[in-house]
């Protein structure tokens, strides 16, 4: 495993609009090492979500160099990207994105089902461990609608953890939660980062949370204005 998980150099991202090209990221330079807990803040339209999508291999860069876990992303096929997304990346969303018709355990097991390296007989054990890590061991057979917002987000975190990814990308993970639950979720992320040394990138509007991260990045009009 490379020490540097993310290496971005001179990255540009533009969107084609009918009125012309819209530049979103401009000559971006970023390096993320293993075990970092990074926050990205910025106003709406600053390019935070686009950057996260690029980091999560959901979108492509327009130009520049981008390496993820040692792989040159531009040379990867869609199939290879799927595998990296599944094995190396965990996602946490603002609105949790749990599938309503699946139980908590089934939701958490979903990434395992797309991972050909893990045998189905280990699913139960791995899912139990992931749920225990987020204190939801007793909610195994319940459906998302039976959980509170905080519990739903913890279930989503368990799902992000279940494949033991190198990188967790959290898009406004506390955006739909109250202050108390927000702090609990953040503490959980910090704990994971501390114990498992998982690299976490959080996009947030919450400056308080951002300040608690090891490293804070501020995006403005597609460039980092603050990189500490």
């Amino acid at each position: 495993m490379a020490d540097k998980l993310i290496e971005m150099s001179n990255v540009f991202k533009e969107f084609d609009l009918s009125s012309g090209k819209l530049p979103v990221l401009k000559s971006l330079q970023l390096t993320v090492s293993e075990g970092e807990l990074i926050s990205i803040v910025g106003k709406s339209g600053s390019g935070k979500s686009t950057l996260l999508s690029i980091m999560g291999l959901l979108d492509d860069i327009s130009s520049g160099d981008f390496k993820l876990c040692g792989h040159d992303v531009r040379s990867l096929s869609n199939y290879q990207k799927s595998i990296i997304r599944n094995e190396n990346i965990g996602w946490i969303f603002q609105n949790f994105n749990l599938v309503e018709e699946m139980t908590v355990a089934e939701n958490v097991s979903l990434p395992l089902r797309y991972n050909n390296k893990i045998s189905s007989k280990h699913y139960s054990e791995i899912v139990n461990q992931a749920l225990s890590d987020v204190d939801l061991g007793d909610k195994y057979g319940q459906y998302p609608s039976q959980l509170s917002g905080g519990q739903q987000q913890r279930a989503a975190i368990a799902r992000a953890l279940v494949n033991s990814p190198d990188l967790i990308l959290a898009d406004e993970p506390t955006g739909n939660l109250d202050e108390e639950n927000s702090q609990k979720i953040f503490e959980l992320l910090k704990k994971l980062n501390g114990h498992k040394k998982t690299t976490i990138v959080i996009v947030t509007h919450d400056n308080q949370l951002a300040e608690q991260c090891n490293r804070g990045l501020t995006l403005k009009d597609g460039v980092f204005v603050n990189n500490h």
Partner: peptide
């Protein structure tokens, strides 16, 4: 679409 997009994010391939 949202559910299927989520699966895509979690690593689902076209064959899945």
């Amino acid at each position: 679409q949202q559910e299927l997009n989520l699966r895509l994010v979690l690593g689902a391939r076209f064959s899945s």
